[in-house]
Simulated scan of single mutants.
Amino acid sequence: MDQALKNDLTDKMNKAIIILEKELSGLRTGRSSANLLDPVVVEVYGSKMPISQVGTVSTPDAKTISVQVWDKSMVKTVEKAIADANLGLNPSSDGQIIRMSLPILSQERRHELVKIAHKYGENTKVALRNIRRDGMEHLKKMEKDGAISKDDHHNIGEEIQKLTDDFTSKVDQHIKTKEEEILKV
């Protein structure tokens, strides 16, 4: 297989998997995770910033998330941003530290989270198929330009499909692991 093409496709597919891992890390599983606050954006000093740029996010125990806000005047703003993010968290401040206790997930909510995880997985699979399609179109162009033979096109196409299948199975494994994590009570 054309090594440059293979490396390019592998890099793009790895990036799709990294994005999936980041999305899955933000799903609540009943245990606290600092990544749960990743979608929170705080309006400070006239611009919007991720919460990680206005304070230190930590998980002191399995059921609590805390944010130590660096600027004391921003505590109320950060607290409001967390509440407005619709994450199901009730922030309460104690000086410069905002604490949130994670409510226990109901079985119904756990199943909703599993559906969201599957949606993330399907979106990643679509991205992988699009990357494969781009690689196959590149092969067609190479064959048309005379850079590779018809047999090479066929063999490289099979390698691209195998690469896609390998990454698709990685997606399935990530989703399966996350599903088990979410459903574990």
Rank of each mutant, 00 (worst) to 15 (best):
L113K: 03
L102C: 14
K144W: 14
D172N: 11
N86D: 15
Q173K: 11
N123Q: 12
R129K: 11
Q173I: 01
D8Q: 04
L183W: 04
E108V: 00
N130Y: 03
N90A: 12
A83Y: 05
L24E: 06
Q53S: 04
E143M: 07
E21Q: 13
G95C: 12
K115F: 00
M136Y: 03
S92G: 08
R132T: 00
S169R: 07
H153N: 09
K176I: 05
I148P: 04
G55Q: 02
T29G: 09
T164E: 00
Y45C: 12
Q53E: 08
R133G: 03
K6V: 01
K144L: 14
Y45Q: 15
R31L: 14
D94Q: 07
H118G: 01
G26E: 13
L36H: 11
V42F: 11
K15E: 13
N130V: 05
I182T: 00
I17D: 03
L24T: 02
Q107V: 00
A85S: 15
K80V: 03
S47N: 01
I116H: 07
V126S: 01
E180P: 04
K178L: 15
L113E: 06
Q96D: 11
I116W: 10
I182C: 07
M136S: 02
L87G: 12
L113D: 11
I175N: 04
V40K: 06
N155Y: 13
E21I: 06
R133A: 01
S106H: 06
A34G: 14
I182V: 09
K80R: 10
I175A: 08
Q68A: 14
P60Q: 08
K184V: 01
K115D: 03
D38E: 14
I131W: 00
R109H: 01
D151N: 08
K115E: 05
V78F: 10
M49T: 10
I182L: 03
S106W: 03
I17Q: 04
K76G: 11
A83L: 13
D134E: 05
E179K: 03
P91A: 10
E179G: 01
G46P: 08
L87M: 13
K48N: 14
Q68K: 14
S93F: 01
A62Q: 12
M74K: 08
G26K: 12
R31M: 14
S25G: 15
G46D: 12
E112G: 07
S101N: 15
N7Y: 05
K48P: 09
G26W: 12
E112K: 08
N35R: 15
E143Y: 02
E158T: 04
I98H: 05
D145T: 06
N86S: 15
F167W: 04
G26P: 07
K12S: 10
M74R: 06
S32D: 07
I65F: 03
H153M: 13
Q173R: 07
K80F: 06
T10I: 03
L105G: 02
G95A: 14
A127E: 02
I131M: 01
I175T: 06
K119M: 09
A4Q: 08
E112C: 09
I156C: 01
K12T: 04
W70V: 05
T77Q: 01
L24I: 11
E112A: 05
D134H: 08
T164C: 00
G88M: 11
L37A: 11
H118T: 03
K176F: 06
M142Q: 07
N35V: 08
T168Q: 05
S25I: 14
